[in-house]
Design a protein around this nucleic acid. Sequence first.
RNA 1: GCGCCCGUAGCUCAGUGGACAGAGCAACGGCCUUCUAAGCCGUCGGCCGGAGGUUCGAAUCCUCCCGGGCGUACCA
Length: 541
Amino acid sequence: MLTTSIKTLLTEAWRKLGLEPVSFSVDPSERPEYGDFSSNIAMAGAKIARSSPRDLAARIIGNLPQDAFAKVEIAGPGFINLHLKREMIHSCLKEILQDEGKLTAEKIGRGTKLQVEFVSSNPTGPLTVGHGRQAVLGDVLSSLYEQLGYDVTREYYFNDEGRQVDLLAQSLWARYRQLCGEDVTIPEQGYQGDYLIEIAQQVKDDIADAYPVFDEAAKGFFRVRGVSVIKEMIKDDLAQLGVKFDNWFSEADLHRRGEVDAALKALTERGGTYKQDGAIWLRAEDNGGIKDSVLIRSDGRPTYLMVDIAYHMDKYRRGFNHVIDVQGADHHVEQSCMQAALKILGYPQDFLRYAVHQFVSIVEGGETLRMSTRAGRFVLLRDLTSELGRDVVRYFMVARKPETHLQFDLDLARAESLDNPVYYIQYAHTRIASIFRKAEEIDDPSEVDLSPLQSPSELDLIKQLDSFPEILEEAALRFAPHLLAEYALNLARAFHAYYADHRVLGEETDLMQARLALLSAVQMVFKNSLEILGMSTPEMM
RNA sequence: GCGCCCGUAGCUCAGUGGACAGAGCAACGGCCUUCUAAGCCGUCGGCCGGAGGUUCGAAUCCUCCCGGGCGUACCA
């Protein structure tokens, strides 16, 4: 990578000054007259060197190898602007072509076992667009970490026990009795969505008129029935979006194996709990949490937090080195309690990290729809996916910074579907594919003489390709997949501009082969980018 | 009240210490005998919510204020 090698040269030049190390940056220059890359090393190190930035810059430059750069200048307050030799850029492209590995990130993960848990919606209803954002975020994040060499497990946690599932059972039973001609109302806190009518109809087809009252037997039956049907619904919704999980984890299993009791015992043994008002509390506040929370209610039932702690102990036992939980911004308190619990248990501090995201609101007809699964007010993920297609939904969901609210304007998504970023990027890939279909003779790109590539836009394209691995690493480590979405868009922009005023086919052989080699590298990067984003790479449009 | 997140062009958003703040959409004007015009080029448009502070340098870090979202359950 160019920035890496430049950084190495500058670090070496700095070391020759005999001063303590300094942290500095090397960035692509903002303007052509600033060269290819700029560094702030002289300004950053001015204090250490007790010298003015510009003087210091001159001394650093004096220590650089004579022939490393085409031109090195001091500019503005003390920037060092580096003009690369063309051969350096060409050899960078050569490396990319020779070793596809140059297009992927450094394998800093080295097989570290990482679990990414996401969506984990209760099996009480179909997924909404809100879950959709999390699904795409978690999936792309997982792919990014895979690129970094991590051994990633995508996991979905089903809360298939407890109060919410009981409410689902009762709501489903009520729908069922309604179909049997009875005037039964859905419980206040229950699930009002129409999807339960459909399931109730299936139930009625199977068992005719039964369960006149909602007793234990009815609860058991409708719970099992409802949960299993809805689990499949959820899996279908995710499959349609192209999200695949390695593991579906059931809360019921935790209870069955006694892990919840064991977790409570472990916390208590370490002095992490206390009794008050008939309940058992987690000593969260003393351990960095926002506030103490109930683990066991006064009626003896465990809270969600208690079970979740048991679940995370289970993750640890399964040997994951790191766990990332993708969650909505509304779980803030609980997140701090979970971290407090893990601290009490003595887990490594970096075992669990939360990738937090804000919500999606759907804007239609200038109106914002406020969603609530329980009230039955929501836009279903599957409706969105069916209408707009997997590629569009995925791109829109991941193109925004996770911590900002995502306004999904349905009208805009529909109306703009023709010049939307998705097609813009895919079209770039298509254009390249088309050239390769028509090209008659293509030399092995890694053997081609690249020196005919001389135009600024060609050299810029190469520099953009070169930064791909850095983007992957930053997008993963910062939980910021939108950086990749944006990168792909920028690369497409650069390519389309290039395409508009550079011919490939029909040019003199050396130039044509060099350009074909460049395009094959660009195509590879589009392919990798879109694949990580979970989008298709059409050959024709 | 307290905690977390957000406030950048008419709209949707990039930009987490660097040189005159960027893109898409919208508006306006150019470009198709040539590898797919689902494209390219140009114009218009911003005291980066406000006020202080730290720094050689702040949209970016700190403090306070204003505005919006979320949370503050023996719900999940």
